[in-house]
Structure formats: C-alpha cells, structure tokens
C-alpha cells in the first residue's frame, strides 16, 4: 500500500514570499521520516506540499517536482482532491467533526465521497479504529459525539479517520504537540505499527520524539527571519543524532540554538 515520495528541487511560495527553497529528498515507503528544525523553517509548509494542502491557503504555489512512485503530484492533469485521497494528513490539534459521532467521524471520508453501503462502512470503521488503537475504548459508544473524547483519543480518532480512506502516505503535522505524555506515547506506539503499512512523514518540534519514532530524519533551517527555509540534510536518524554531516545540524540537535 505504501509508496515512495521523490521530491526534486521544490520551491514553495505564499504569494510573492518564498517560504521554502530548493528541497530535494526521497521518502522511503514503509518507514517513518521525521522533519525537525526551528520554528518558521518551512517544515510544515513543505509537508503540506506533499498532499497539496498548501493550496488551501490563498497564494500558495510550488515550483519543482513531487513524484509519488510514478505519479507526478503537480502534473496539470492531477486533481488535488485525488492527491489528498492518496496522501492523508493528521493535524497538530485534533479536529474531529463536532457534529458527527465517533462512527460518523471515521466514516466521514468515505461517506462524503459517496460510499453508502452500511456493511462496507461498518467493516472499515472497525478496522480503522482498531488500526488506530482506539477500538477497545470506543466500541461501546460509537454513536457518541467524537468531540466528547479526550485529546489523545480525539487525535487517534483523527488518525482512524485518515486511514479509513486507505491512503498510501500519512502526513502528520506535529500530531502530539497538543497532547500529554501518556497520549503522546500512545500515538508514538501507533506510528510504529502504522509504518508497516504506510509511508509516514511526521513534523515534530520534539527531537526526542524524532529520535524515538523515525527511521530517517530531515533537518530544516533558515538563514534568517524572512529568508526561505532550506533542507540542511536528511539521513538515517541514528546518523543525524550521532554523527551529522553538517555543523548546523550538530548545533541544533545538541541544543546550541533553536
């Protein structure tokens, strides 16, 4: 199910502002890639270009190429809606649909895209909730509002919702930054399981988290405020944290700045 992402020489703009410059990297399938870096270095912006979510913000556009296996995500014939069905996303703050029950939240992606068969939905809702390690906690109250869950449960609900549409890639934008340590642990365990089936890209501010969950780590930085963010280096996580090839990476992970 998982696919490889190949980015070559990508620039991201908001209007005339260049937010990210010259990123080239490969994201391996069935692995976890972490993006780390100081605030404003463009790692979230870059993440959003992987499923064209940056286009939701007025003026957002890219130059360069993003390939998902052999599909060009920015080909003229490529519909952003199709891209987002293939590349799912989990956000910083848990955002279940407040009008929907737990069941409806998980089924939302399918229902809103026209799947009506009750049996199909039941099956996918159950397997997605199980996949998100939430099934046992909510199986007796599937019809209760999703907003009534705890923050950590809500985030796992959002993960269940994202994997219910069976994407190839799962993007996570600081998925634990609004959660307590216990819920964070639950999510990290979940990421570890999910990487057997999905390509996972996670943005995190927490370097320990990057070290714990990821196979590869990409370090982003910017020269100064107002300058575009750049990819400094991407390598195996153990290498980045033990023996990075760039001085800036070394400085960042050892806490000398950022």
């Amino acid at each position: 199910m998982a696919k490889r992402i190949d980015v070559s020489d990508l620039n991201v703009y908001y209007g005339s502002f260049k937010a990210v410059e010259g990123v080239s990297m490969t994201v391996e399938p069935r692995s976890v890639t972490a993006f780390i870096g100081p605030s404003g270095c463009g790692k979230s912006t870059f993440l959003r270009t992987l499923n064209r979510m940056h286009e939701v913000i007025p003026g957002g556009r890219v130059e360069g190429k993003v390939m998902l296996d052999d599909q060009d995500l920015y080909a003229a014939s490529m519909d952003p809606v199709t891209v987002r069905r293939t590349v799912g996303m989990v956000f910083q703050r848990p955002n279940p649909f407040p009008t929907m029950s737990i069941y409806d939240n998980v089924a939302a992606g399918l229902r809103l895209n026209g799947v009506k068969n009750k049996k199909t939905l039941d099956g996918i809702v159950e397997s997605s909730l199980k996949g998100a390690n939430l099934w046992n906690e909510v199986k007796d109250r599937l019809n209760k509002p999703g907003a009534g869950l705890s923050g950590g449960q809500q985030q796992r609900l959002c993960i269940a919702r994202a994997i219910a549409v069976q994407p190839q890639v799962l993007l996570m934008d600081e998925p634990c930054s609004a959660l307590d340590p216990i819920s964070t642990l639950a999510i990290e365990d979940l990421i570890n399981e999910l990487k057997n089936d999905y390509t996972i890209v996670i943005v995190t501010h927490n370097m320990q988290q990057a070290a714990r969950v990821s196979d590869r780590t990409a370090f982003f930085n910017l020269k100064a405020t107002g300058e575009p963010g750049r990819l400094v280096e991407v390598d195996d996580t153990t290498r980045i944290f033990n023996n990075p090839s760039q001085q800036a990476t070394e400085d960042y992970i050892s806490g000398r700045f950022g």
Binding site: M53, R84, R85, F91, F97, A108, G109, L112, C158, R161
Partner: peptide, 21 residues
C-alpha cells in the same frame, strides 16, 4: 478552518465540504 482542512485532507471536494461540513 481546521474542520475545512480536515475535510480537504480526506480528499473531499470543496463543495461537499461546504455542504456537508
């Protein structure tokens, strides 16, 4: 806005997002 983004990220077209979410 997070709800709109959540919907877009599920591959839901904009008009369906507006109507259903």
């Amino acid at each position: 806005n997070e709800l709109r983004e959540a919907s877009y990220a599920l591959g839901v077209p904009k008009w369906v997002t507006v109507v259903k979410v």
